[in-house]
Amino acid sequence: MLPTRNPDERLKARGADTRPAPRFDRLSAEREADGWDIPEDDHLLRTEIVTEQPRSIITRNTSPDVPFDRSINPYRGCEHGCIYCFARPSHAYVGLSSGLDFETKITAKPDAARLLEQEIGRKSYKVAPIALGTNTDPYQPAEAKFAIMPGILRVLRDWNHPVTLVTRGQTVLRDLDLWAELAAKYMAAIGISLTTLDAGLARQMEPRAPTPATRLRMIRELSRAGIPVRVMVAPVIPVLTEPEIESILTAAREAGATTASMIPVRLPNEVAPLFRDWLDRHHPGKADHIMNRIQAMRGGRDNDPRFGARMRGQGIEAELMRQRFHLARKRLGYWDRTPMLDCSRFGPPPRKGDQLSLF
């Protein structure tokens, strides 16, 4: 059961409504009205951003469910506030709540570019595409101020290092020239997450993310710049966004997307109670129906964390969803997969005084 919301905090455009205790905390606190509250205590909850200086920036993984083995996350937490975000539980590892803390207490890593160049410059480093935006969005609102991404992209460009991106943040268009430079050498591909075409529903689910119309514009402008764009119909929420599978694929294809992917909604750990609370607040008449359909794809539970199942779901519900997606993707002429990125040119950029190559 989630704790009650702090009545002294006014929320504006937030996905979560409360702060459940971090998973690893042995103690939790519950607010209790004592009759002494006064109106002057009321305040608007604002985003807090702190910086950190990590010792490394590349994160490694061995998951069989994802197509990359290394990633970079310039930020911890995400102000977009998507209620279904699978990354919310990661805040528990630093003693923060997966609820409001995840979307209001953000950590930025401004030294990311220097650390990246240091790590890929080691003699032991073996090149493979680096994935950006795999946990939290590198083009979330904080990026407009901190501008960490241009430095990362310049390092990758100078070293001819391939890179992929998943985002829904329109600040990516600020770096269009850098992405286009990488794409011209077959070293970049971008995925744009598009969950719904309904602006009102998007505002509820993803309160500080760009509107669906803006995301379609992002696809259009990135594609025109020669960057391969994948539309990510993810997550698909039964009853709520599932009816839009075909219309999302159609709109994205018309905007220039060349590949498409889909993931049914998954609700790991603390995300499930937050999502249930959000349904009760915004869609109470559909809440039970939606959760029953989700559980039908997850073995009767809110979530199935097993490798091989967590990204796909199982059962008739999941299979019908996949068939609809694949048929629409084929009908609309999407490519089967994004072209492989070129790793053959990787190497240190020429320095002043270096002997130039003849070829």
Rank of each mutant, 00 (worst) to 15 (best):
M205V: 13
L44R: 09
R208N: 12
N135A: 15
P207S: 02
E206I: 11
Q355R: 12
W278F: 05
V236C: 12
C82F: 04
M321A: 08
D177V: 05
R10L: 14
S28K: 14
E9V: 12
R19D: 08
T214A: 11
R312M: 09
E221W: 03
T47D: 08
V155M: 02
M321W: 08
R46N: 08
Y125R: 04
M187R: 15
I316W: 10
L320G: 09
R14F: 03
V231C: 04
I83S: 11
E319R: 10
L341R: 06
V127N: 00
S90N: 03
G77K: 01
E119R: 04
D158I: 01
F359M: 09
A188I: 06
R215F: 06
G77S: 03
T241G: 09
R88L: 03
Q140H: 01
I148F: 12
N73Q: 08
Y139A: 10
M297T: 02
A180C: 06
H43E: 11
T47K: 04
G333W: 05
Q170R: 12
G299L: 00
E270Q: 14
L153E: 13
P129V: 10
P264D: 08
D280S: 09
A128G: 14
G226F: 04
D17F: 09
G121Y: 02
Q53D: 14
L115V: 02
T4A: 14
G226I: 07
F346Y: 14
C82L: 09
T51W: 05
M321L: 15
E319N: 12
P212I: 11
E119D: 01
L182R: 07
D288P: 00
D137R: 11
R23E: 15
R306W: 09
G15W: 07
G121M: 03
D25I: 01
R14E: 00
E32Q: 13
A252R: 03
H91N: 10
V271M: 07
D177F: 01
P235F: 05
P349G: 01
L240S: 04
R301Q: 10
L100C: 12
Y93N: 12
G226S: 04
A209N: 02
L358K: 06
I49P: 05
G191V: 00
L320C: 10
T18A: 02
T171W: 10
I263F: 03
R345P: 05
A108F: 00
S90T: 15
H91F: 05
T107K: 02
L116D: 06
T338V: 14
R312V: 13
P74D: 10
G299D: 07
R114I: 02
V236A: 09
Y186L: 10
T51C: 14
F102N: 05
D41E: 13
M311S: 12
A199G: 02
S357F: 07
Q204C: 10
L240G: 01
P284N: 04
F68R: 04
D336T: 15
K330D: 15
R230L: 08
I130H: 07
